[in-house]
C-alpha cells in the first residue's frame, strides 16, 4: 500500500542510523511515510479519535527525531523502538499519566554494536513478525487486544508459543556487551 523501501539490513535500520548520526531529513521522511500511518492506526485501535491519532503520530515522529541518539539496533528493531514511543504517548493521552521508564544503561566510550549482532536481532524480529502472522486467529486477537486495548495481561502472558526466547537472549547479549564496554 505504500512505497516501502526497506533498507539493506532490512526494517529501516539504515534510515534510522542516518537520522541518529547525521540528522538526515530525507531518511526521516522515509521513516515517516512508513511509520506515521502505523502509529496513527495503532492509536485509533487503542481508542483515540482520528484527529488526535493524527496529531499524536506527528508527535511520536518528532520524539523519534529527538531521541534518535538512544536507538540501539542490537537491542531493538526500528518498529519496536517506534512502538515504545507510541505506547508511551498513548498512556499520556488516554490516561493522562506519567510513564516511568528504566534508566539508560550508562554509556561509556561509544560502543558501536557489531554488525552481526544488529543483523541477528533484525532477523529474529522478522521471524517474530512471521510467527505472529501464523498464529491461530483467536490467539492473535488476544495478543492484539493486550497491546491495543486495556485487556488485563495476566491470562495472556503465556497463552502463546511465540519465539521470544531467542530475542531475549540476543538482547541480553547486547546488554552484557554494553555493560562490559563501560567498565
Amino acid at each position: 500500500m505504500s512505497q516501502d523501501k526497506p533498507s539493506r539490513k532490512g526494517q529501516w535500520v539504515d534510515q534510522m542510523l542516518k537520522v541518529r548520526d547525521n540528522r538526515d531529513t530525507d531518511a526521516f521522511a522515509e521513516l515517516f511515510s512508513h511509520f506515521a500511518p502505523r502509529i496513527k492506526g495503532f492509536l485509533i485501535k487503542s481508542g483515540a479519535d482520528a484527529a488526535t491519532a493524527e496529531e499524536c503520530a506527528q508527535d511520536v515522529m518528532v520524539t523519534l527525531w529527538r531521541k534518535a541518539g538512544q536507538f540501539d539496533p542490537s537491542r531493538a528493531s526500528v518498529a519496536t523502538w517506534v512502538f515504545t514511543i507510541a505506547r508511551n504517548r498513548r498512556i499520556d493521552i488516554l490516561r493522562r499519566e506519567r510513564r516511568p521508564e528504566p534508566e539508560d544503561i550508562p554509556w561509556g566510550p561509544e560502543p558501536e554494536p557489531e554488525q552481526a549482532a544488529v543483523l541477528e536481532l533484525q532477523q529474529e524480529s522478522a521471524r517474530l513478525t512471521a510467527a505472529l502472522a501464523e498464529l491461530p486467529e483467536e490467539q492473535r486477537k488476544l495478543i492484539e487486544q493486550a497491546y491495543f486495548g486495556e485487556l488485563s495481561q495476566s491470562e495472556i502472558a503465556q497463552a502463546t508459543g511465540l519465539p521470544l526466547g531467542t530475542i531475549k537472549s540476543r538482547i541480553r547479549l547486547a546488554l552484557d556487551r554494553l555493560r562490559h564496554a563501560m567498565k
Partner: peptide, 16 residues
Amino acid sequence: ESYDAVGGSLLEGAAT
C-alpha cells in the same frame, strides 16, 4: 524489550 518486540511486530499491520 522482547515483549516490546511483539508490539513492534503488531505495529507493522496497523496502518491508517
